[in-house]
């Protein structure tokens, strides 16, 4: 066992160590181990049912694994409540965009940026840097001129972007991004990839998707999940040439024109 690794540049930010999730005999995750270094951008792909979303559920505390350990900055996340994990610096974007539809864009971003305790919400005021971050992010998603628009009135693509912006406003160390380009146009997909690439470095970013062009554009190491465990890791080209991957994933895609 590694014990609690010291927090320095070399230590991984996120470590999954032999994690299994058992849904009444069905292993959604099967002895999954994975490491993410600080500042890394990583893409995770895999066919439907490979356990991609379950994998995020385990990290963010929605699911308790039946065995194995999840460590973030050297600390185990097991048994912690979702909001504690979020406050430690893990942000998550959901598969279908989830924003607060009855709040304005600015309110959505401000909530994500603020200190999360009830007393701070009532009596504290938003710091200078948080306010600047919110205004900056409104600009990034190109909605700076309509901060009072209700989030529910946005288009699907804009909601995807607002949710990513909320994630950034939260200023987490680790961003878990689940299918950010589902339902986006090609142009939007490209810009999303560029945005995520920019975020890496300052943040550690893990992206889950199965849009191959998008993953290629991310230009990041790829981890392939299959039936709950890591099938292989490597660059996009390496992964695509791997016969095992071709068989379980890309091969299947080739068969259907």
């Amino acid at each position: 066992m590694h014990g609690n690794a010291p927090i320095d540049g070399s230590a991984p930010l996120l470590e999954l160590d032999g994690v299994s999730v058992d849904f009444d005999g069905f292993l959604a995750l099967d002895d999954l181990s994975l490491c993410l270094a600080s500042g890394e951008l990583r893409a995770v792909i895999g066919p439907n049912g490979a356990g991609k979303t379950t994998f995020l559920d385990v990290i963010t505390g929605k699911l308790l694994p039946s065995s194995g350990d999840v460590r973030f900055k050297g600390r185990s996340l097991l048994g912690q409540q979702e909001h504690h994990i979020a406050r430690l610096g893990v942000g998550r974007k959901f598969q279908s965009p989830r924003v607060f539809e009855n709040l304005s864009l600015r309110q959505n971003l401000t909530l994500a940026a603020s200190v999360k305790t009830p007393l701070a919400l009532l009596f504290g005021s938003l710091g200078r840097s948080e306010r600047d971050r919110v205004e900056h992010l409104l600009g990034v998603i190109d909605l700076a001129d309509r901060p009072h628009l209700l989030a529910g009135e946005l288009s699907h693509g804009q909601k995807q972007w607002l949710e990513i912006a909320m994630l950034v406003a939260q200023d987490p160390d680790l961003l878990l991004v689940d299918e950010p380009v589902a339902g986006l146009t090609d142009g939007e997909t490209e810009r999303t990839a560029d945005l995520l690439r920019e975020l890496a470095g300052d943040h550690t970013v893990l992206v889950i998707d199965h849009d191959m062009e998008f993953i290629r554009r991310l230009d990041a190491p790829v981890t392939v999940l299959h039936e709950g465990h890591v099938l292989c890791e490597g660059t996009m080209d390496q992964v695509q040439c791997d016969p095992a991957v071709t068989e379980v994933y890309l091969g299947r895609a080739d068969e259907t024109p």
């Binding site: 909001h83 979020a86 406050r87 998550r92 959901f94 709040l103 909530l111 999360k116 919400l121 909320m166």
Partner: peptide
């Protein structure tokens, strides 16, 4: 912002949890 958080609970409580509330 307290009131915004209340409305956010009404809209999507689970999402609010993952935001750190």
């Amino acid at each position: 912002r307290f009131g915004d958080a209340l409305v956010a609970i009404r809209d999507d409580e689970a999402r609010l949890r993952f935001t750190g509330f």
